[in-house]
């Protein structure tokens, strides 16, 4: 029973840790399926988290925080769009720029406004997205195995967690079953064909970038308002890049994206749990090794030792209308 409890708790923190990855990963999916590489997921998430922390603290409303996060993140997304769609700039360079702008601005503004070393004041319960208790969670807790699983693992997360996992089938449906999704995929593979059909490549790609911004904003709001209680300097800590790696690993498809994010979340949860617990045979694993593991794994995955990932064909290439 002890091992079972440990396992369920491990999976529970896996879910919590994979949610920001999942939001960011799906965000990247919309953008990259439309042919816009986005390395700026990290920056948008960070700026979103800062906006969420600030707005939620000032207004005391969780919803306002969320909207602020989405707004700021979409604005940064539009900057990326302006550079890479309108001005056909290098998408990677633009994304890197956004990451730096977000990293610097959040610290400077946070310090100037709140004077707490770059963090925002901690949020009261009303300004956060607290845990939702699903019906019957308390009553079923004592039912062996399944009841505990239900009350620990399935119930008791914030609404954003459920939203993140609902976004997976929703994204699949949008991409595979709607006109917008078909066009979005087409513009990432062969924008000239979309253009020939009389559909604006520019507008489509802008819409994809906006979708990306919304989801990154949700990821940021989750970090500042659900996982944490306020913004902390550099709180994304490379999650945007991990999400990007998960996206590639998932070959730009929603359901595998969720699985990849859960895998990286699990590694993270495992790393936290293993701190100070020696393993049989190996002895104590250095914390740094566990911290580096997701990145090492990403490199191995990307090297194509586990299946080859083929990006959208027009990805990273600015579209030039024929003259």
């Amino acid at each position: 029973m002890d091992y079972y409890v440990t396992l369920v708790q491990l999976l529970d923190s896996t879910i919590r840790l994979s949610v920001p990855l999942l939001f960011a990963c799906l965000a990247g999916l919309y953008s990259e399926r439309a042919g816009i590489f986005d390395i700026g997921l990290e920056g948008k998430m960070l700026a979103g988290a800062f906006a969420a922390g600030t707005a939620a603290y000032l207004t005391g409303s969780a919803m306002v925080g969320l909207l602020a996060a989405v707004l700021v993140s979409v604005l940064l997304g539009l900057v990326h769009g302006f550079a890479s769609i309108t001005h056909r700039g290098n998408q990677i360079v633009s994304g890197v720029a956004i990451n730096f702008i977000a990293a610097g601005t959040t610290v400077i503004l946070g310090q100037a406004w709140f004077r707490q070393g770059g963090r925002t004041p901690s949020l009261p319960a009303g300004a956060r997205f607290g845990a939702l208790h699903l019906p019957g969670a308390e009553a079923l807790r004592d039912v062996p195995v399944a009841g505990y699983l239900y009350s620990e693992l399935i119930s008791g997360h914030s609404i954003l967690v459920y939203l993140a996992f609902l976004m997976v089938p929703f994204t699949w449906w949008v991409l595979q079953r709607t006109r917008f999704g078909l066009r979005l995929r087409a513009v990432g593979e062969n924008p000239a064909a979309v253009d020939t059909a009389g559909i604006s490549v520019t507008w489509l790609r802008y819409r994809a970038v906006i979708c990306c911004g919304i989801l990154c904003g949700l990821a940021g709001a989750y970090l500042a308002q659900a996982q944490g209680a306020g913004f902390v300097k550099d709180m994304t800590a490379g999650k945007g890049y991990i999400a990007l790696a998960a996206l590639i690993f998932a070959k730009w498809r929603p359901v595998p994206a969720m699985l990849a994010c859960l895998l990286f979340g699990f590694l993270d949860a495992l790393a936290i749990r293993m701190q100070g617990h020696p393993l049989p045979l190996i002895g104590e694993v250095p914390v740094q090794f566990m911290q580096a593991l997701p990145y090492v794994l990403t490199v191995i995955l990307l090297a194509g030792f586990i299946g080859k990932a083929i990006p959208p064909r027009a990805g990273g290439v600015p579209y030039v209308k024929e003259r």
Partner: peptide, 22 residues
Amino acid sequence: NISRDMIVIIQGLVILFAGALE
């Protein structure tokens, strides 16, 4: 109110304007 992190912003803006928006 201004710390060295200002450099990170300037750096980002330079990358944006001299790189992506060149």
